[in-house]
């Protein structure tokens, strides 16, 4: 796994976050309490004089881990976050396409409409999945949240698209360039608090966090950030191995993303 220059990554990400905040009047960040979206909150604090300058949204289907909920309240208090919890109902089977797709997307559509957000900061990275490597830094979504991946706006240099169609919104991806190991190196450097589920307990840890129903832990003895970095330096497996939705079918991720999944 390639380790990139953290200052360079930080500079680019803070530039993108500022650009998003300045170009749109109502912006929010999605916060799953995972390592990536928490890193984006730290970058946002650095970009805006120490305080996250927009609300953070948790799409809560009620079946996240208890540790995740505890982490949510403690960091909200510590960083003074303006937290919006969007409850997601679980109506159908508890995994993959319809669970992550329909349920969470509906909850998000509801909260976007209620608050009138024009842009959402989403913490995806190119190295997570082949489909995510196709994303732009600023990516428009239709009213129905659809991603028109065959017809993406041109993104040249620092000129990000920001023209809104009626009732559509933008996804802003400030850490698209980062690799998994860069996130952990940055967490170590910045001493960013993380969800304890990432650390090994009795030989297992979560490498990627979803809800209790579609995430399984991987074998690992890494019990702190330094040990996770050391583990990633020699790892040959993929980050999202424990995520149900990636395995189901070849193109599930493509379908989920084109329908609005994060």
């Amino acid at each position: 796994m390639i380790e990139q220059d953290l200052n360079e990554l930080e500079n680019k990400s803070t530039y993108i976050i500022r650009e998003g905040k300045l170009k749109f009047s109502k912006v929010a960040a999605l916060w799953s309490m995972g390592k990536d979206s928490t890193t984006v909150l730290q970058l946002s604090r650095k970009a805006f004089m120490g305080k996250v300058p927009f609300p953070v949204i948790h799409i809560d289907n009620g079946i996240d881990f208890p540790e995740t909920y505890e982490f949510r309240s403690s960091l909200r208090d510590e960083w003074g976050l303006e937290l919006i919890v969007a409850k997601s109902e679980i109506k159908n089977e508890l995994s993959g396409f319809s669970c992550c797709g329909e349920n969470k997307t509906k909850a998000l559509q509801g909260v976007m409409k209620e608050y009138g957000f024009e842009a959402l900061i989403v913490s995806i990275r190119r190295d997570e999945h082949g489909i995510r490597a196709k994303e732009r830094y600023f990516s428009p979504r239709s009213k129905e949240f659809k991603w028109d991946y065959k017809n993406q706006p041109l993104e040249l240099w620092d000129n990000y698209a920001s023209r809104l169609d009626e009732e559509g919104h933008y996804r802003i991806h400030p850490i698209l360039d980062w690799n998994e190991i860069d996130i952990w190196r940055y967490i170590e450097r910045e001493k960013i608090p993380v969800n304890p589920l990432y650390f090994s307990e009795s030989g297992f840890r979560y490498r990627s966090l979803g809800c209790t129903h579609c995430t399984v832990p991987v074998q690992s003895d890494a019990s702190n950030v330094g040990e996770i970095i050391a583990e990633l330096r020699v790892s040959t497996s993929e980050e999202r191995e424990g995520r149900e939705q990636d395995k189901e079918k070849e193109y599930v991720m493509q379908k989920l993303r084109s329908l609005g999944y994060m």
Binding site: Y15, R18, E19, L22, F48, M49
Partner: peptide, 11 residues
């Protein structure tokens, strides 16, 4: 880029 904190902090 613009003002990130008015009246005088820019980015």
């Amino acid at each position: 880029q613009g003002y990130i904190e008015r009246p005088r902090v820019i980015s």
